[in-house]
Amino acid sequence: MDAVLRIFRGDAQGGQFQDYTVPLHEGMVVLDAIHHVQAHAASDLACRWNCKAGRCGSCSAEVDGKPKLMCMTRMDEFQPSEPITVAPLKAFPVIKDLVCDVSWNYEVNKRIPPFHPKPPEPDGTWRMQQEDIDRVQEFRKCIECFLCQDVCHVLRDHEKKDSFAGPRFFVRVASLEMHPLDVASRTAYLEEQGGIGLCNITKCCTEVCPESIRITDNAIIPLKERVVDDFYDPVRLAWRWLTRRDRAP
């Protein structure tokens, strides 16, 4: 049996969707179909991929309009009678075909205040309990596929790239903020540069996360609450003013 892939072909100047027919086999994923097209019909069809096992987060695309990892999207999820649309991520500029320019994300990462550990024990190592790191290990599962960044309407529709870090980097900040060894504070970063207030917690990031990280509930909202602690809670603000204390270090 065959399926039809309707793939975006083009670059920054524009392009069009083009149909390709690929034979189906058991267990086939969309990335297999793309590879088939490359090998047989369009050797210059651009797409990113690496591990093909949902572990590296390279093959992000929009399949029938939904942000997905192509290597983890089975062809048998779709109606064989209908063409399957495969388009590049829309929140980022297209370079060519399914490849887009995600370099902005790497720039955002550079601006996040880095990990700053407390001094180690006398033997040069650190002690941490599993219960202290369980929460952070969820965030460390992130494979940087940037599907959450793609689907986030603040970046996708409102184009706030200059003032908003996006869900991926809130997850990263959460992994640092809640790290039991870290002594730095990133609430000022979140409030002033990260733009966490622009997030209106509509949860699309959580819906598309291939690692099932509960981005909104476990990372963004707890960070919003920490920002409230330091910037909005009137009682705390009054207390700090009375005691002439600055924000938590």
């Binding site: 929009e62 309009g65 939904k66 942000p67 829309k90 793609d150 689907v151 309407h153 603040v154 996708r156 529709d157 409102h158 184009e159 706030k160 733009g195 207030g197 622009l198 997030c199 209106n200 699309c204 819906e207 598309v208």
Partner: peptide, 14 residues
Amino acid sequence: CAVAEIRGTSYRGE
């Protein structure tokens, strides 16, 4: 999710 809304940069969120 992934459905276009009224675009614009006037968005202020919360």
